[in-house]
Simulated scan of single mutants.
Amino acid sequence: MLALSFMRHAFVAGTFIAIVSGLIGVFVVARGLPFLTHTLSEIGFAGASFAVFAGWPALNGMILFTMLSSIVVGQMSIKRSRREAVISAVSALFLGLGILFLSLSSETASSATSILFGSVVGISIHEVWELVVLSAIVLIVTMLIYRPLKFDSFDDIGARVTGIPSTAISVVFLLLLALSVSVAAQIVGALLMFILLTLPAASAKYFTHGVAKMIVLSILFSLVGTWLGLYLGYLTNWPVSFFIALIEAVIYASALLYQKYYVE
């Protein structure tokens, strides 16, 4: 399997995507932002569709749209009372824009399929290097703000009392999340990318409560789903995103059963 260059590219890209998703996902869950990853998936779809229409690489369009809109959407949906309305309105708008851009472009339907469901097995070495660089940026910035981000995510009241600049931390994190969404969508597609950014971290919190341990376990779950999904996709020629979604769902169900029968 690894004798094939496209599979080597897929595993390298998938590994970096899984690490980024596992790390950022812990803070997504802690900050109560799974809804935002779902909204950003529709925005990323619109961005990638616009890129196809404009003749750009899809990743560039996703980064442009998600980074420009992440802060605005995040601030609009801070209040829980209007969160559902914001999600519905923004998701509907950007889904519609994505469909419009695809209909106006001269590309075939395969472009839409790649954007929606991912196409990691067809990724080029140039695209692998793009993902590696973007992943490195996310990891480095996250490590630089790790202590205040952890404090603000898991004890926001205490963070404000101690003078941590919560607004600045939130803005930086939203930009990191936007980059992570664009990166993760390359392997599981715009529709399913929130799986890698939520389920591994949501599963990890049932097995441990330490933040560092949670991050390690979340990354491990993300890697298992990605690697096994790529392997099963290679064996069956079925979509890799299907296997990743299935594996992460099984891990999450196992975490719930562990919590119910071994912790309570």
Rank of each mutant, 00 (worst) to 15 (best):
Y234S: 08
A30T: 06
L232Q: 08
L139S: 08
M1H: 09
S124H: 06
S180E: 07
F65P: 07
S110F: 10
K260N: 09
A255D: 10
R82M: 12
L4V: 05
S254G: 13
G229A: 07
L36H: 12
E264D: 10
V73M: 03
S203Y: 12
G55S: 10
W56C: 01
T39G: 15
L144P: 05
T113R: 13
L139N: 08
S5D: 13
P239N: 06
A245V: 12
K260T: 08
T162E: 09
D156M: 04
W238T: 14
Q259N: 14
S81G: 13
N237G: 04
I244V: 15
I87S: 15
F154D: 07
V72P: 09
G225C: 03
L59T: 04
A249D: 14
S119T: 08
G55E: 13
P165V: 02
F50W: 12
G61W: 08
A92I: 08
L256W: 11
M193V: 14
G163S: 01
V28F: 09
S119M: 05
S41L: 07
I19Y: 06
I43R: 01
M1F: 11
G96M: 11
T108H: 08
I169K: 01
Q186E: 12
A178E: 13
Q75S: 11
F173P: 03
G47V: 04
Y258H: 11
T162V: 10
A253T: 10
K213M: 14
L176R: 02
M1P: 13
G32W: 12
